[in-house]
Structure formats: C-alpha cells, structure tokens
Design a protein around this nucleic acid. Structure first.
Lengths: 199, 199
DNA sequence: GTCTATACGCCGATAGAC
DNA sequence: GTCTATCGGCGTATAGAC
C-alpha cells in the first residue's frame, strides 16, 4: 500500500520503479525541477527512452502518481469507515493515517499537500473534488447529522479541521517542526477536533 | 501598497510593470509555466531583451516579488501593532488584512500562500523565517505572556491559527469556496482564535 | 525492453545597432 | 531603453537497431 518499495533482482525497469523514483524526486525538488534525465538516473537506465516504454510523457507519470495515491487513500478511508461508527473515531483514524504516512512515507504526503496539482495538470480536478476527499466530507456530514459536529456547512468544517491538520503536516515536512509528525499528532487532533466539535 | 497598478502614459517599461505582470502570470499559471515570452507579451514589448535591463534573470523577478510583498506585509504589521495593544486585536487586524487582500489583490495572496517559494528559490528562507512572519510570532508570544492565548509553544499556536486562516484563503482562491473571502472571515476568525485562545 | 542516435522546439540569455 | 539577431543548451521526445 502507498507504493511500497519492492526490492527487485532483475535489471528490467518496471513501471513501479519509475513511479517510485519520480515520486521521490518530485517531492524533493518539485515536478518542474525534475527532468526525465533525473528520473532516468534514479532508475539506473542509460537513456530516457526507456521511460517512454511505460509512460506517454512526463505529465503521465505525475497523473499516475496522483491516481495511485488517491486510490490508496480512498481504500484506506473505506476501511476506516467500515471499522468505526462515529465520525470522531473515523476522523481520528484518518488523522492517524496521515501522520503515520508523514513519518513513514513523507514523499506521499509532500506530493499530496505541497505539490501543486493544478500547476502540473491544469486540466485536472481540485484535490477536494476527488473521491477520497469526498468520502472525508461525507464523514463530516454524518458527524453533523449525528450531532457530534456543530451545525455548519460541511465544507467549512472540512476547512477548519484539515486547515490545522494539513498545516501541521506541512510544517513537519518543511522542517519548521523539528520532531517527527507523530509527536504533534495528539495536540493537533485536539485543536482540529475542537474547532468543529459540538461544544 | 501591495504593488498597486499605476496607469502610466509613457511607453517605456518600468520595473514595476514587469513585476506586476509577472505576479499576475506567476499566480495564475505558476512560475514554471510562465516564460519570459509570456511576460514580454504582458508588458507589451517586442522582445524579452528589455526585461534584462531590469532583472538579471527570471529568478530575480520572483525574488524581488517576494521581497516586495514581504516588505509591504511587514510594514502593515508594524502599523497594526502600533495601533492595537492586545494580541487578539492585532491578530484580528492581520486577518482582516489578509482577507481584504484576497478579495482585492488575490495575486498577492496566491503568490504568498500557493506558490512554492522553495521550488522557485531553493536557497531562500522558509516563509516562516522571514521578517513579517517573525513579527506575527511575536504577536502570539505576547498574547501568551498576557494570558490571552493559552500556554503552548508559539509556533504551535501559529500553526493552528494560520492553519485555519490560510486554508480558508486557499479554498477561496482555488474556487472551492464560491463567495468572496470577506464572507468567510468572521467564522474563520472565530474558529482560528478559538483554537488558540485561553478558555 | 534497453540501447544509440538524433531531432528539434523552446526558453533563457547575450551582443550590439539604433 | 528598445530593438534585431542570434546563440547555446537543456529537456522532451522519436526512430530504429539489437
């Protein structure tokens, strides 16, 4: 899940290797500061030609990355919703996932939160309009219906809650917060949940 | 202030015209999707050569933009601190400024919040480390000292407060919030202040 | 599926006349 | 300060042999 590294013996380059290397480079240097030459070097082939065996062009790599990450996220959210009934519990686990990923796979969260999707893929949807984020909004809507979350527009609640969560993760990723994400989680949760919970 | 448009009669291109046009383009399409040719067209000169009369290179334009915006912001914050004693009042006015700018000069806030400074100028400081943001942190520190804001790390308080404020502005700028920033201000303020205020 | 070779467009940037 | 002209190079992308 979330594009784990597979150590492979063979020399042939797989699509996943390209994706993994690109994700790392894109999140470190940014999409536009990463050339196909950089990617080619990272996957250890001699020319950029090999990349075109797997992807139409550079954009297609980024597109596939977004798709994969959003799919993984969507599946995780489904799982979380299945295992928990209350919106507070579901949000708690989503937050847990995001903080865990920030420590264990920072490239994924960096790519998701810091990289500007619209700048790379101008024709694509806003993140907010993608499947996993719609699912999160539904969690919040249920929380409002059940009286756990105060009666405000669900997008507004999303905004306050993930404003705090995402900003916290961004500061960890930028190095402004020096400790692992993990150590900021419980306080960030309290602040975020406090901003939308009833009473 | 904040790079207001000056309608000039003469045909000679000024530095400010280049800055203004670049700011608009950078915030609309992103820095890397904007070529010097785009800028040249926007300021209505025939070749890109003219740009080099005023700026060493493309990066220098972005650098100057950041400097100017941060300077303006810094001056405004000084003014706000002079006119108000309490941290809550000072933050209130800073929020007021940011929301007003989002409606009246969205390019400025887009450039500040959405454009990734580190991707354009990898050697530059984090936004958080610049003068105006240090001043904001000092406002928060004073609020903690005076008992207005709860006793937490000032960076943490900054994080919660501006997590909500910035996320709100981002959603307005992205179009996810369809009304002007103005209409979200008072609720965003309440949520943000509520996340750090004592009691 | 990986290589060699190559094309080529775009973009950033410079020199120098006016 | 604006223009013409021009450059070098990088980065993307393709054709075709192995």
């Amino acid at each position: 899940m979330f594009m784990e590294n597979k150590t492979i013996a063979s020399k042939t380059i797989t699509q996943d290797e390209i994706l993994l290397a690109s994700l790392k480079l894109f999140s470190e240097k940014g999409y536009f500061n990463t050339s196909l030459t950089d990617i080619k070097d990272a996957v250890n082939i001699k020319t950029t030609s090999g990349i075109y065996q797997h992807f139409k062009n550079k954009q297609a790599i980024a597109e596939e990355l977004f798709d994969n990450i959003l799919d993984s996220l969507s599946i995780s959210i489904d799982d979380i919703r299945r295992r928990n009934r209350k919106a507070s519990e579901q949000l708690r686990e989503i937050v847990d996932l995001l903080f865990k990923l920030t420590d264990e796979a920072p490239e994924v969260i960096q790519f998701l939160l810091v990289v500007n999707k619209k700048e790379i893929l101008p024709e694509s949807k806003l993140l907010l309009e993608t499947v996993p984020f719609n699912k999160i909004r539904r969690v919040i809507q249920n929380g409002i219906k059940d009286g756990e979350i105060r009666s405000i527009d669900s997008l507004l609640a999303y905004n306050y809650f993930f404003g705090i969560i995402n900003h916290t993760l961004s500061l960890v990723l930028s190095g402004a917060f020096s400790k692992p994400a993990d150590s900021y989680q419980s306080h960030a949760w309290q602040a975020a949940w406090g901003s939308i919970s009833k009473k």
